[in-house]
Write a protein that binds this DNA or RNA. Structure first.
Length: 297
DNA sequence: ACCAGTCAAGGAAGC
DNA sequence: GCTTCCTTGACTGGT
């Protein structure tokens, strides 16, 4: 099955996410007025998420939940808690509605590249931990399992030291986190730097038992001898959730993502998040390509 | 109604 | 030891 990533281009005209910057929050006074405006945007974002999950259920897709549902909430200087938001009861009601509907949609999250659990900068580690716990909190509210069925996928994004040292720092920090994070956390190969598939399997899976998310485009840009099937084996009894994308046809940088696909993932028994900019339209096109291929073969 | 600039983050890479 | 780039899309403010 295929996952839609964060945004539905088909629903965007009527259901779009809202955000607020830290600067804007402070320009509004950083008080009740600012919090009221922020709270309304959080509620909007959870409602939009519900609508997109319905849309995915209708189409037989999975869904990667956006990491931008609660702007400012994890900012280190934000003085309020989530329950201080005037709309928080309504937000909880919306989450309950999502849980109660029991959509057959595999949910996942992908915290940003600024989460660096193995950093030597302790402030960065603390922010990373807060962000990961926030994602786990959100996934619990969405009714997600605490397992690799509903993974939290991140990059290592650190090359400070020997690979085994980085992996051990990462694992030591991970061990201090809640069950909601530890039970879901997986790591993905990167399109540059030391963290290709081979090193991830060697230092994160073999050494610490952390499953590996295989990204085909990153593997093309930053190859190694270990491949997609080796990554699939790191997921144990869980169905792997991998990434599929293609290079932009008109850009010299191989790493930039295309809008639409020209091909499709060939491996069976694996779910794929489709990281193509046309979003829903790209998934429909991939499904057409798969259907044509199966008729011809 | 539209458009260009803004915003936020950690680290890598290039002077 | 600086600056720039990477990445992203909604927001903001000016026209």
């Amino acid at each position: 099955m295929f996952s839609l990533c964060c945004i539905s281009n088909e629903l965007k005209p009527t259901h779009s996410f809202q955000t607020m910057t830290w600067k804007r929050f402070n320009d509004l006074g950083a008080g009740e007025l600012a919090l009221k405006e922020l709270s309304a945007r959080w509620l909007n974002n959870v409602k939009v998420t519900h609508r997109i999950i319905q849309h995915c259920a209708d189409n037989g897709w999975n869904y990667r939940v956006s990491s931008s549902l609660f702007p400012i909430l994890t900012h280190p200087e934000f003085k309020y808690n989530h329950y201080d938001a005037p709309d928080f009861e309504a937000i909880l009601d919306e989450f309950r509605a999502i849980q109660d509907a029991r959509y057959p949609v595999r949910l996942s999250t992908h915290p940003s590249q600024f989460v660096v659990l193995a950093s030597n900068n302790q402030e960065s580690v603390k922010k990373s931990i807060d962000d990961l716990e926030h994602h786990a909190w959100m996934m619990d509210l969405l009714g997600c399992e605490r397992s690799y069925q509903n993974p939290i996928n991140i990059h290592v994004n650190c090359s400070d030291g020997e690979p085994w040292e980085i992996a051990d720092r990462f694992a030591a920090n991970l061990a201090t986190l809640s069950d909601g994070v530890r039970s879901r956390l997986v790591v993905e190969n990167e399109d540059r730097g030391i963290w290709n598939v081979e090193r991830l399997v060697k230092y994160f899976y073999n050494r610490h038992g952390i499953p590996i998310t295989y990204d085909n485009l990153h593997h093309k840009c930053n190859p190694s001898d270990v491949g997609i099937y080796d990554c699939a084996a790191t997921w144990g009894d869980y169905k792997p959730l991998f990434h599929y994308s293609e290079s932009h046809p008109d850009k010299s940088n191989l790493r930039s993502h295309a809008d639409m696909p020209t091909d499709f993932p060939r491996i069976h028994s694996v779910d794929h998040e489709i990281e193509l900019k046309a979003k829903d339209f790209a998934i429909r096109h991939i499904q057409n390509l798969v259907d044509k291929h199966s008729i011809l073969s």
